[in-house]
Nucleic acid binder design. Structure first.
Lengths: 114, 114
DNA sequence: AGATTACATAGATGTTTGTCTATGTTTCCC
DNA sequence: GGGAAACATAGACAAACATCTATGTAATCT
């Protein structure tokens, strides 16, 4: 199990009425941490590439070349996304397969509601 | 008129099919810049405070105290949000009133579709 | 006109972050 | 068991960023 550096956001407690009502500091920090994980061009591309892959899953070695980045850099970004609960990690033999957590993305849309 | 440091994202050209298909670097950078503007706890609180204000608008002097920040810091964040097209600025006399650009927020939900 | 109020801009500073190289760990295969 | 392949972790470094103090600008009021 991976250590989570970002506490997974619970939609039911974090900004329960979206952005329409005043948000306290802790809730704002949680939401900001979640959004920050997506706010990087490389990570946005990673998400789209995983989604567009066969069976909607991809391993690290499939992602380094199209992004023209080193393997550790890609691993780093995938860890950020995993810690935020935006993608999921599954080890099968030597490979590690990543998939997008679809529910998580629907949550985000809810959190941004006004 | 304020100088825009972030090119406003055109939904029709930026990630036209959401995050389901591979996204090129320029489009990913545009989307990341937009999301980065929201990915800060202070700015998230600002948005919620503006929305919760009378007439859904607020001036800088109304926002410094509840956030416990200096006026220049609040002005800085409001500029980031304005440049990203997320809020709008209207000067009336000595005061400057900020409102949330509702359409812009709906665009973001579209951009994040999977 | 002078003083005051509201806001923006400039510049400085400590922290965060994206990327790299180097190395460790685990699994597979011969 | 030894080598190779896939991935993670550690450490370093430059760029970006959030905040502050100091100062500039514009509008109001007496």
């Amino acid at each position: 199990m991976t250590t989570l550096t970002i506490t997974p956001v619970d939609v039911s407690t974090c900004a329960p009425s979206g952005l329409a009502a005043p948000i306290g500091r802790p809730e704002a920090e949680q939401l900001a941490a979640l959004l920050k994980a997506i706010s990087d061009p490389t990570r946005i591309q990673l998400i789209s590439y995983i989604n567009a892959s066969n069976n909607s899953e991809a391993c690290v070695c499939n992602l380094t070349e199209p992004l023209a980045l080193t393997q550790p850099t890609v691993s780093h970004h995938l860890k950020v996304l995993t810690d935020a609960g935006l993608i999921e990690r599954e080890k099968r033999g030597t490979w590690v397969w990543y998939t997008v957590n679809q529910d998580r993305w629907k949550q985000i849309a809810k959190l941004l509601e006004i």
